[in-house]
């Protein structure tokens, strides 16, 4: 089963079996503008739901990316080191930030599904 969930801070997390992939949404990349630097976590790093897990910087601002759920990083996206603008061009695909295992899969239940996130975006732009 593939299921994408969203945070209020505009991260997405896609569950594939026991593993999950994390990135930032198209809305997030459009708000940031031209992304010039991304720092992803190393394999084996423990991340905590709602705490900083990665960094993304545009020309004008630095932002923290939060872990949507708690768990352990299994892979950071090495492509983003040399091509951070991949996050602009393909935020939901090749621009993923890191893969992780989940400590408690039930934490996903507290996140928004696609319909809820779409409704939330309307409020963000209001």
């Amino acid at each position: 089963m593939t299921d994408i969930r969203y945070t209020k801070e505009h991260e997405w997390i896609r569950l594939d079996g026991d593993s999950a992939t994390v990135g930032i949404t198209d809305y997030a990349q459009s708000q940031l503008g031209d992304i010039v630097f991304v720092e992803v976590p190393d394999e084996g790093k423990a991340v905590t739901k709602g705490a900083e897990a990665a960094v993304v910087e545009s020309v004008k601002a630095a932002s923290e990316v939060y872990a949507p759920v708690s768990g352990t990083v299994t892979q950071g996206n090495a492509v983003l080191g040399d091509a951070p603008d991949t996050v602009n061009s393909d935020p939901a695909g090749d621009g993923w930030f890191f893969k992780m295992t989940l400590t408690d899969a039930s934490e996903l239940d507290g996140l928004m599904d696609q319909a809820a996130y779409d409704a939330y975006l309307k409020d963000c732009d209001a």
């Binding site: 801070e9 991260e11 997030a28 630095a62 939060y66």
Partner: peptide, 9 residues
Amino acid sequence: MKAVADTIL
């Protein structure tokens, strides 16, 4: 995601 440093603002 949250901005932690903004050069302009």
